[in-house]
Design a protein around this nucleic acid. Structure first.
Length: 417
DNA sequence: TGTGCCGGGCT
DNA sequence: AGCCCGGCACA
């Protein structure tokens, strides 16, 4: 099933700067001014937020904006009220929702911001292009907050230099707490600058479910996506292909398989949202967190093909959304799985623990068919463990989130004792 | 009594 | 093989 919402695959890296003013047109440097901290406000539901974007590709922006707004489930009505061309290369978008301002929207704006740092955008943009996004937070009084300004500078054609994360963390409390974590994940898990010179071969992998086609050119992969998956209809926007492929880098020195296997970590909606910055893994060098959330890249390892035999660890591409902290802690706690009956975004995905389980199953867990599990007494039932099983964890009403074994009334494979 | 899961039946 | 469920054992 193709999720109705496609997750962006681009790098959610944003650079926090300040210095914008109400007019929102002041160009600022990427590193921000000293008073950026104090001005970073806490966002409250109900606040109005405007996003001003300066880039020379309005189409792309609108696309991303809409996409991300959808992605983050902005339930409110959002409309681009203002599109103005200020100069030969500056387009200003002002997005302002009409009613309920959701934190998600702000988040969307921030992610949108991060997109400006996307390598692809960089590729497609002139090197001289300067891109900046401004998030204005409108206070109750209607005044525009002149702080909280995220921008990226493409002037040098390299990924925007972000201020040290630690610095940002120290500077001031970032928005909402929950949002904070998400932002940390989305915005700051950006891998270190990619290694893509000489020793790195770049290719483009189609993220369409069950496709995975890899082509060596952007044009090629886009053509493939459009022809093979999207079709020619106008139903899909011009740049929709962007969301269906990701770059893969093959280190010619180490020759790692593209779309590399990602270790037993993370699911898009894993609840184990440890704020601990995830270590930079080789895979992360290859895929930005957002790219991990592309269509075919749900960290949806179908662990339940067989309720006993561990399935092949099939990780299409690294991801969730909303990117998820790469945490390898096995926490048999309730995973906020995205269930089908929930919002369209909710999908059943494999929890961290489950993946851990799978991996471990693959390595040292004896197959029931070949090696009988140790039993205290022959032919007796297995001793009931203390661990909560799916039934208890998810409840009967969420039976669809149970592991297959539990659903079949077999020994739980997700929460082993 | 609720839960875990074996054993077996059905498709 | 996948799926479902009766029914037993256990906490």
């Amino acid at each position: 099933m193709v999720p109705k919402t496609r997750l962006g695959k681009r790098s959610p890296l944003g650079t926090l700067v300040c210095g914008s003013s109400a007019e929102g047109l002041t160009e600022t440097g990427p590193l921000g001014c000293p008073d950026s901290g104090p001005h970073r406000s806490k966002l409250y539901p109900g606040q109005k937020v405007s996003v001003v974007h300066k880039v020379n590709n309005a189409t792309m922006l609108s696309h991303f904006m809409v996409f991300y707004l959808i992605r983050f489930r902005c339930m409110c009505t959002v409309e681009a009220k203002n599109v103005e061309v200020w100069s030969n290369s500056i387009t200003t978008w002002t997005m302002r929702n009409t009613e309920t301002v959701d934190m998600d929207e702000i988040m969307a704006a921030m992610v949108l911001t991060s997109l400006s740092c996307s390598p692809v955008i960089q590729h497609s943009a002139p090197k001289s292009l300067t891109t900046a996004y401004t998030v204005f937070i409108e206070n109750g009084g209607g005044e525009l907050y002149d702080g909280g300004y995220w921008s990226c500078d493409h002037g040098n054609g390299s990924p925007a230099p972000s201020p040290p994360i630690t610095e940002m963390d120290k500077s001031a409390p970032l928005v909402d707490e929950g949002l904070d974590m998400e932002l940390d994940q989305m915005l700051f898990n950006e891998p270190t600058p990619r290694k893509r010179k000489n020793s790195v071969k770049v290719a483009y992998r189609c993220l369409w479910p069950n496709c995975g086609k890899i082509l060596t050119t952007v044009v090629g992969i886009k053509r493939h996506i459009r022809n093979s998956h999207l079709g020619q209809s106008d139903e899909h926007s011009q740049r929709e292909e962007d969301f269906y492929y990701t770059e893969v880098y093959q280190d010619l020195e180490q020759t790692t398989p593209s779309g590399g296997h990602r270790s037993s970590c993370t699911s898009p909606s894993s609840p184990s949202r440890h704020t601990t910055p995830s270590p930079t893994t080789p895979e992360m060098h290859q895929h930005s967190p957002l790219s991990q959330s592309a269509p075919g890249s749900f960290w949806q390892v179908h662990s339940e093909h067989s309720y006993q035999a561990p399935p092949p660890v099939q990780v299409v591409t690294p991801i969730k959304p909303l990117s998820v902290p790469v945490s390898c802690h096995w926490t048999p706690s309730l995973t906020v799985h995205q269930s089908k009956q929930g919002s369209p975004f909710r999908r059943r995905s494999v929890s961290v623990g489950e993946q851990w389980l799978q991996n471990n199953n693959a390595t040292f867990r004896p197959h029931p068919a070949s090696v009988s599990p140790p039993r205290n007494h022959c032919t007796s039932r297995r001793i009931r463990g203390e661990a909560k099983k799916c039934r208890k964890v998810y409840g009967i009403e969420h039976r669809d989130q149970w592991c297959t074994a539990c659903r079949w009334k077999k020994a739980c494979q997700r929460f082993l004792d």
